[in-house]
Computed example of a mutant assay.
Amino acid sequence: MTDELVHLAHADTADGRVATITLDSPHNRNALSRQLVTELLGHLAATADDPEVKVVVLRTAHRVFCSGADLSEAATAPMEEGARAVVELQRRIVAHPKPVVVALPGPVRAGGIGIVAAADVVVASTAATFALTEVKLGVTPAVISLTVLPRLTSRAASLVALGGEVFDGARAAAYGLVTTAVEPVELDAEVDRVVAALASGAPQGLAETKALLNRDLLARIDADGERLVELSARLFRSDAAREAMTAFLSRGR
């Protein structure tokens, strides 16, 4: 049997059950392979349907949260397939009836940033790093823009999307991409504090309040998702993108 890449665990607290979904695919830095995406979607569905679960925590077993698409599969799968998977992951988190909290200790890139932006609360380490490098590759952060752009201020969006430079957890908090950034040694304690506060809510109140908060974001995903999948695939297939990617890689970056 293939080892699972995403683990689901439960912990019962005084205020209800907390489900923890852990990405554990170190060989490719939690890249969004078919197996990882399938397992992650399955665990999100299971926690959504479990009436005992009050809060879902999404984290990594290692330092890197997610490196984006699994490039080893890119040559054998239609480009639209991977883009649609990222859209579906974002939608599943946004539409999830329970609060979803991301604990972010280290780097996150590409589709992983879309997952982070889809979550309700993100606690990041100041050592975590982010980058929207698509502009340097002749493409655009098409499908992750569904959740990323509504989180960022407009000025921050222009800076990070057009500049493509790496920024840290403190900057991500200032830009609106994450909720808060704390020193690495404080990450677990802050996640526990946030989760305890969320778990104190009544299930109906949590579900209805989340639906109210995410109504516009969910509508955006449903209205624009397929159009952005097509845009992403078209740009990645272009000669301009191939030339830019070759030049980018030749610089050893």
Rank of each mutant, 00 (worst) to 15 (best):
E81N: 09
V191D: 05
F65V: 03
A189W: 07
T153K: 06
L152R: 04
D50H: 07
V64T: 15
P184H: 07
R251G: 10
K136G: 00
A11M: 09
R84C: 05
M1F: 12
S158F: 09
V108C: 15
G112Y: 04
T147K: 07
A128L: 09
V148C: 04
D216P: 00
A83Q: 11
L162T: 11
V194H: 01
T133R: 14
T246Q: 06
A14R: 11
A202N: 13
R237S: 15
L132N: 04
S72M: 13
L177Y: 06
L40Y: 01
R234F: 02
L162R: 10
N28K: 09
A233W: 08
L206M: 10
V121S: 02
L58E: 05
D216G: 07
R92L: 03
L217R: 15
A85D: 15
A247F: 01
L206A: 07
V94D: 00
G112M: 06
P26R: 04
T180W: 04
S33H: 06
T133Q: 14
L71S: 14
D50R: 03
L36K: 01
D224M: 12
A174I: 08
V195W: 02
P150Q: 05
D3G: 13
V229W: 06
L41E: 13
V56W: 02
L104M: 09
H27E: 13
E80I: 09
T153W: 04
L36E: 00
A173L: 04
R155D: 13
M79D: 11
A157L: 01
V195P: 03
L228H: 06
A207Y: 01
T179F: 10
D24E: 06
V116P: 06
H10R: 15
V143L: 04
G169C: 05
T2K: 11
R59N: 07
V139I: 15
L212F: 15
H62G: 11
E88L: 12
H27T: 12
L23E: 08
L41I: 03
E243I: 02
S158H: 09
A157T: 03
M245I: 14
T129R: 15
D168C: 08
R92T: 12
D192N: 10
E80S: 14
L36Q: 02
L8F: 06
E230L: 15
K210Q: 07
R242S: 10
A197S: 12
A31E: 00
E243W: 00
D50C: 01
T133N: 12
L40G: 00
G82R: 04
L89V: 02
A241K: 05
A196M: 04
E39S: 01
V18T: 11
I144V: 14
E39R: 05
E230C: 08
R17M: 03
A244Q: 01
I115K: 02
H43E: 10
P107E: 11
A95L: 12
R242D: 09
A83Y: 09
R251N: 10
R92P: 03
V100M: 01
L212R: 15
E73H: 05
D120V: 01
V178G: 06
